[in-house]
Every structure is written in C-alpha cells, then in structure tokens.
Simulated scan of single mutants.
Amino acid sequence: MIPMERASPEERRLLKLFRALEPQDRATLLAFAQFLMAGGAANDTRPSNQKDETDALAQQPRPEPRPQDESVIAAIKRLRRVYPMLDPGEMLHETSSLMAAHVLQGRDAGAVIDELEYLFSAHYEALSKSDAQEP
C-alpha cells in the first residue's frame, strides 16, 4: 500500500471549493492554476550571481513562431522564452490581468495573445532604452 500524505487545511478547503464549482468554472480554476505555475518572480530560485551571468547572456530576444492554436498560457511561456531578459515579477500584474480577462471574462485568446506580445515587446524596448542610457 502506498502511504498517503495527509492534506493540509488549505488543500481540503480548495478541494471542497473545487467540487462545488460547475464544470466550466472548474476548467477556469485549473487554467488559472496553470497560469500561476507558469511563472512569476517567486519561481526563480537561481542565486543572484547566476541570474546576473545568465541575464547578461540573454540581452537579445529569441524569436519563436506563434503556433496557430496557441493557448494564452502557452503564449506566456513562449514569450518568457523569447524575452528571457525581462523580469516576470515586474510584468506579473499586467500579465495576470490579461489572463484574467481571457479566463474570467471570456475575452478572445487571439486578442489577449496579441496584447501579451505587445506588452512583452514594449517592456523589452523600455529595458533596451534604459540599458543604452546607463554609463
């Protein structure tokens, strides 16, 4: 028999809430959980000196083609690979707002992905300008 780990009070509460949701709302909750797992500053556990070395090597975007039927979550992951020099923590509010507009308000994925691409590009341009102005 495989030993079962006892669920924490938070896990039990989440499961109870999940079970009370309609199927469409369950899918929304799962999509949002996937989004949260996809990134954020809290997920970067590299030592700061390793971040600096890695970031210095990643100053240019690495373009990837946009898949035809790309999900919003997959687009965020792709854009983080394309723009590894950007701090996901600085963009978390804007990115999560766009994700919420898609998941919670039913906004079209293609339109949200277009805005995400613009957002990442604009942040990259701002970073490039600030780097160029440093002595």
Rank of each mutant, 00 (worst) to 15 (best):
M1G: 13
P3Y: 00
M4I: 04
M4R: 15
A7M: 15
S8C: 00
S8T: 15
P9N: 13
P9I: 11
E10R: 15
L14P: 12
L14F: 14
L15G: 07
L17V: 11
L17P: 04
F18V: 10
A20K: 05
L21W: 09
A27I: 03
A27Q: 08
A27H: 06
T28E: 01
A33N: 12
Q34R: 14
F35Q: 10
M37T: 04
A38S: 15
A38R: 15
G39A: 04
G39N: 04
A41H: 10
A41P: 01
A42Y: 14
A42L: 12
N43P: 00
T45E: 14
N49Q: 09
Q50K: 08
K51L: 14
D52Q: 14
D52N: 08
E53F: 11
E53S: 11
T54H: 08
D55K: 06
A56L: 14
A58W: 01
Q59Y: 03
Q59T: 15
Q60N: 13
P61D: 08
R62I: 02
R62M: 04
P63V: 07
E64W: 01
E64Q: 15
P65K: 14
R66C: 13
R66A: 11
R66S: 10
Q68I: 00
D69N: 15
E70M: 05
V72A: 05
V72E: 03
I73N: 13
I73Y: 07
A74E: 13
A74H: 13
A75L: 09
R78A: 06
R78G: 04
R81S: 06
M85K: 04
M85I: 04
M85Q: 08
D87E: 07
P88S: 08
P88V: 06
P88F: 01
H93Q: 14
T95P: 11
S96R: 13
S96T: 15
S96D: 13
A101P: 01
V103H: 11
L104Q: 12
L104N: 12
Q105M: 15
R107W: 04
R107M: 11
A109E: 10
V112Y: 02
V112M: 05
I113P: 01
I113E: 02
D114K: 02
E115N: 08
E115C: 06
L119W: 06
F120R: 03
F120D: 02
F120P: 00
S121I: 00
Y124L: 09
Y124V: 05
Y124G: 05
E125A: 10
E125F: 02
A126G: 11
S128I: 03
S130T: 14
S130L: 07
D131K: 06
E134T: 07
P135V: 07
P135A: 09
P135Q: 12
